[in-house]
């Protein structure tokens, strides 16, 4: 069962199916069907290194050498999924992503920054950040710009135009 359907009580993550709960280190803390049992060490779930900086949650694939990139002066706005690959998004934005998957929107350089993260099935997760204050009008405009970019990228992706 996917643990993402589960629930968090205190510092423990529990599975929705049978309520087995796990500590931050991944070890099983409790098996409700057997309240008297101390779960053996062998029952554990995989854990990943996680860090929260500048309002963004980072998960490491494997053991990272350093901390996540800093995003000074940027405010995270929203995350959205595009049914388009990174190449299609680059084509739609008219710029190449950096090695870290960073794209600055051409129409307003430095104002809207996208972090692209390739997913399975040709999808891309787009995290949208904006510079300066989270003024509602600017935020809404940036959110809509990201939607437009996604529409354009998905069109390119479906038509197979993206390189």
């Amino acid at each position: 069962m996917r643990l993402s359907h589960g629930f968090v009580r205190g510092e423990a993550l529990s599975c929705i199916y049978h309520g087995w709960s796990y500590a931050q280190a991944g070890n099983c803390l409790r098996i409700p069907a057997h309240p008297g049992l101390v779960p053996p060490e062998t029952i554990r779930v995989a854990t990943h290194v996680v860090e929260e900086t500048d309002g963004v949650i980072w998960v490491a694939a494997g053991q990272p050498e350093g901390g996540p990139p800093r995003l000074d002066g940027l405010i995270p706005l929203r995350s959205l999924t595009a049914h388009a690959d990174v190449a299609a998004i680059e084509a739609a934005a008219g710029v190449r992503a950096s090695a870290e998957g960073v794209v600055d929107l051409a129409q307003s350089p430095g104002i809207i920054r996208l972090l692209l993260s390739a997913q399975t099935e040709g999808k891309t997760l787009i995290h949208v950040l904006i510079k300066g204050t989270a003024d509602p009008t600017a935020g809404i405009a940036a959110s809509r710009a990201a939607e437009s970019l996604r529409r354009k990228a998905e069109n390119l992706h479906t038509k197979g135009i993206a390189p």
């Binding site: 309520g19 409700p32 069907a33």
Partner: peptide, 14 residues
């Protein structure tokens, strides 16, 4: 956990 308050309920999990 799945049929809460119908077929089962905490703390009666054993």
């Amino acid at each position: 956990f799945v049929h809460t308050d119908i077929l089962g309920a905490e703390p009666h999990t054993e």
